[in-house]
Write a protein that binds this DNA or RNA. Sequence first.
DNA 1: CGATTTCCCTGGCCGC
DNA 2: TGCGGCCAGGGAAATC
Length: 270
Amino acid sequence: MPELPEVETIRRQLDPLLRGQVIVGSWAFGSAKFTDARFAVGAHLAGVRRRGKYLLIDLEADAPMELIVHLGMTGRLELADGSSSPASSHLRARWDLDDGTALVFDDVRRFGRIAVVGRGQHTSLPTLDALGPEPFDDAFTPELLRSRINASSRVVKTQLLSQRVVAGVGNIYADEALWRSHVHPGARRLTRRQAADLRDAIRSVLAAGIANGGTTLRNYRDAEGGSGRNQRYLDCYGRSGEPCIRCGDTLRRIVLDARSTTYCPTCQRR
DNA sequence: CGATTTCCCTGGCCGC
DNA sequence: TGCGGCCAGGGAAATC
């Protein structure tokens, strides 16, 4: 379940390793979600960027292009050098690089996606195309958060997961940010104070996630095959039935949009 | 057009 | 030990 901190961790690891290399060959699993991988062959890798949970690898070829990778639920990107090849029991794509290494994409459940598009041409990926601001961007203000949340009748957690209000928040960090800011996941309107607290909480839980190398609960591994450490510091997600560390009440699990949601019924009132 | 629902996937876990 | 059933859930397509 890679969210922004996990994708950013991978981006930071891959960028210096991929920059300057040339893709000399490729292989892709026979599914439309991955077959675009072969269109990157022949391109020069100019750098690895990130938008929300999407990795954007800049390609220089006849025209500027982007190799877009979304890790879905169980996607893993690793660099294989001849000596140590990463676990790839569910290989979905491989890009052979001119120094003899290979970028390998493994994805057990095939919720991931690969696309090669013209630079900045994102209309074929609707979620990316309509992505909200980066959480650390100046544009992500409490006023913007409040106006977008209050403009829709959907509950706040659903809107956070939609990626349209802010980019990169998934189920884990949504529960953490809502808990930290005392906002009920089922709230439909935010006060100015709540919006300010939630904006700050989103930033702080994501920053902690990045600083801790991401959250590994099941499948997530970084680009070196390592586990994250942030799972040791989760206050709310996955802790239903346990006491809230802030007030002592028992954390409760509900289902919103078919996604499990943990919150504190005392700290997070509607 | 926005909101809501369904579907895609398979390893791990639970109960019998 | 074996096996059916269920759960995890991001994003896109289908439907309301």
